[in-house]
Amino acid sequence: MAFPRPGGNSSLQQSEPFVDSGFDIFEWHEQFQSCVRYFVDHAQHHGPIQAVAAFVNIQLPFQSAVRPILSSAGTASPSPVPAPGSSSSSSSASRPPPPPPPQSIPLGAVHSPSPLSRVSLVPYIRRLVATGFDFPAVLHGFFGDDWMAGIGPLLEAERRNYLFAAKSDTWLQVKTSYDMADGQTVPFLRPLQNVSEKEIVVAETNWSEWLAMQDWMLGPRAPEDERGGIKQED
């Protein structure tokens, strides 16, 4: 399944995230931050998300034994919100309450980083991809209404990485690469789900580019077919 990006271009030669000339990284970052806030303030406290996280064996930020993160504001408990897709406004459900007004910081004091700066969504995207849970309903539940624009490019890349990992090594080595510390081993692997022909073609093109990279077939030495692009692997 290929997920669109803001200003996306269907050209295979511009398929990588952040390479597309129509991609606005600053606009993307705002939407990505919206996904992080939704995940921290709402999703991780929602029963179905906790169930999925438990099943695929990955800790949520509030479950961390060291410096747990309960909300984007720090230690305050999040206010309950309707689940995604409920009768309440979907857009309001995916956005946390406005942050408290900034407080003055004494001269010379060290400014503490935002709790959001300690949260990475990539481990969760990787785990959902590897276990076959990266379908729209789950992604919406984890990351809110902005998930497609906010984590779509990362999801596309991680799905392709999973294909590359399967092609590069054995099942055991692939599983090991998806295991995490503190007992958060991946309980099972599933073949990539809901794959489209377009996604396979893009992966083939990028894999061929990687093979060319291994052989230093770059720049003026890059192999070209009749379309002027990198040859696909037979």
Rank of each mutant, 00 (worst) to 15 (best):
Pro99Cys: 04
Gln193Asn: 13
Phe26Trp: 13
Tyr162Val: 03
Gly74Asn: 02
Met1Ser: 13
Trp171Gln: 12
His140Leu: 15
Pro136Asn: 08
Met213Gly: 05
Lys231Asp: 06
Ile230Leu: 09
Tyr38Asp: 01
Glu30Val: 14
Ser94Asn: 04
Pro82Gly: 05
Arg95Gln: 11
Gln33Glu: 11
Pro187Phe: 06
Phe62Asp: 04
His46Pro: 01
Ser64Gln: 09
Gln173His: 13
Pro99His: 04
Glu27Leu: 14
Gln33Val: 09
Ser120Ala: 14
Met180Gln: 11
His29Asp: 13
Leu192Ala: 05
Leu12Thr: 08
Ser90Trp: 07
Ala54Trp: 09
Phe62Thr: 07
Val81Ile: 10
Ile105Ala: 05
Ser86Tyr: 06
Asp225Gly: 12
Thr205Lys: 11
Ser120Phe: 11
Tyr124Met: 01
Ser114Val: 04
Glu158Cys: 10
Val202Asn: 08
Val201Met: 12
Gly183Lys: 06
Leu60His: 04
Gly183Ser: 05
Pro82Cys: 06
Ala51Tyr: 07
Thr176Tyr: 11
Cys35Ser: 03
Asn57His: 15
Glu30Gly: 15
Ser112Asp: 09
Ile49Ser: 07
Gln59Lys: 15
Pro187Asp: 05
Ser72Ile: 00
Pro100Ala: 09
Val201Gly: 04
Phe135Leu: 13
Glu27Trp: 10
Ala222Ile: 04
Gln13Ala: 11
Tyr124Thr: 03
Ile230Asn: 06
Ile230Cys: 07
Pro17His: 07
Val110Ser: 09
Gly132Pro: 02
Met217Asp: 10
Ala222Tyr: 04
Arg221Thr: 08
Ala149Glu: 10
Leu107Gln: 14
Ser168Trp: 10
Leu211His: 08
Ser94Tyr: 00
Ser120Glu: 12
Ser88Met: 09
Ser91Arg: 12
His42Thr: 14
Arg160Gly: 01
Leu218Ile: 12
Arg95Leu: 10
Gly108His: 07
Pro102Leu: 08
Phe39Cys: 00
Ser15Pro: 00
Pro113His: 09
Gln33Ile: 08
Leu107Met: 13
Ser114Glu: 01
Met1Thr: 11
Thr205Gln: 12
